[in-house]
Design a protein around this nucleic acid. Structure first.
Length: 265
DNA sequence: ACATTAACTATGT
DNA sequence: ACATAGTTAATGT
């Protein structure tokens, strides 16, 4: 096993949680050295011909596409354990840009090698499927609200979804989180202008829902925030309720949502 | 560069 | 008429 795999911060929750020692050994031979991307840098950009998929080890990234009108749409957020780079266009180019929101460490794995490896490792393949599907569901909650929800509701959806995926910080209360995204990023993720995001956050602060400053979010009223987000939200992030990888794959994620909702209801 | 605020405009209810 | 959100511009941090 590679030394960086032994110290991997997403060894428990990420893809490799379902890998045996022998499989981890094999993955170690196909993976590339870790990538370190400073905040503001790109893992890859729209149009690039990347042969890698990446497992995020540390830090946050925004996955986005750019429109002709100069504006961009953030499609999803990647954080420790997230996998990016699976989507390629027919000509093998990347259809989106992955930009580091914080200093980032990513584990690059050649797409073709991983595909070949999956043919020998069904459990790993199923876990990959499950993890990608779970993130897709989370992402669709945001994207699906863009056409129908108000500014307050869209922002509430975003914040609740990010809090649920955020691994809990040791020591910190459940109501306070590091949220390393600017209002501009919130705007690009919610389809609002940054000016209106600022106005809306001011209203939410005045309504004693939350406070958000200097990259930290304090939630003061989970009930109302979850109501706005149309979610049965628990302050506990997924990692606290993520069932063990030995469960049947098709029961993992249902368990996550059920457990998350029963904690507050 | 990002956040905030105000004044104004367009659109939908 | 009112609410919501975009635009523009000025100012602050």
């Amino acid at each position: 096993m590679r030394p960086e795999c032994q110290s991997c911060p997403v060894r428990r929750d990420g893809l490799c949680a379902s890998a045996s020692d022998a499989q981890l050994q094999a993955l170690g031979t196909i993976k590339h050295p870790l990538w370190h991307v400073p905040a503001g840098g790109c893992v890859f950009a729209e149009g690039d011909g990347s042969e890698m998929v990446f497992i995020i080890r540390r830090g946050w990234a925004a996955v986005s596409v750019f429109h002709e009108n100069g504006r961009r749409q953030v499609l999803r957020f990647a954080m420790p354990g997230s996998m990016v780079g699976f989507e390629t266009t027919a000509d093998g180019c990347m259809p989106c840009t992955v930009e580091a929101l914080t200093d980032l460490t990513a584990c690059p794995i050649p797409r073709q090698s991983l595909m070949r490896f999956c043919q020998t490792a069904p459990e790993l393949t199923l876990r990959m499927w499950s993890l990608l599907a779970a993130e897709t569901i989370s992402d669709w909650r945001l994207l699906g609200g863009l056409g129908t929800c108000t500014a307050t509701e869209r922002i509430a959806r975003l914040l609740v979804a990010l809090c649920q995926r955020q691994p809990r910080e040791a020591g910190a209360g459940v109501d306070e989180f590091a949220l390393p995204i600017s209002q501009t990023v919130i705007a690009d993720a919610t389809g609002l202008t940054s000016v209106h995001v600022c106005r809306t956050l001011k209203e939410m602060r005045a309504a004693r829902l939350l406070s958000f400053a200097k990259g930290r979010l304090r939630v003061m009223d989970w009930q109302r925030l979850a109501g706005l987000a149309e979610m049965t939200a628990a302050p506990a992030p997924c990692s606290a309720v993520l069932p063990s990888p030995t469960l049947q794959p098709d029961r993992w994620r249902e368990g996550v949502w059920r457990n998350a909702s029963t904690q507050i209801q």
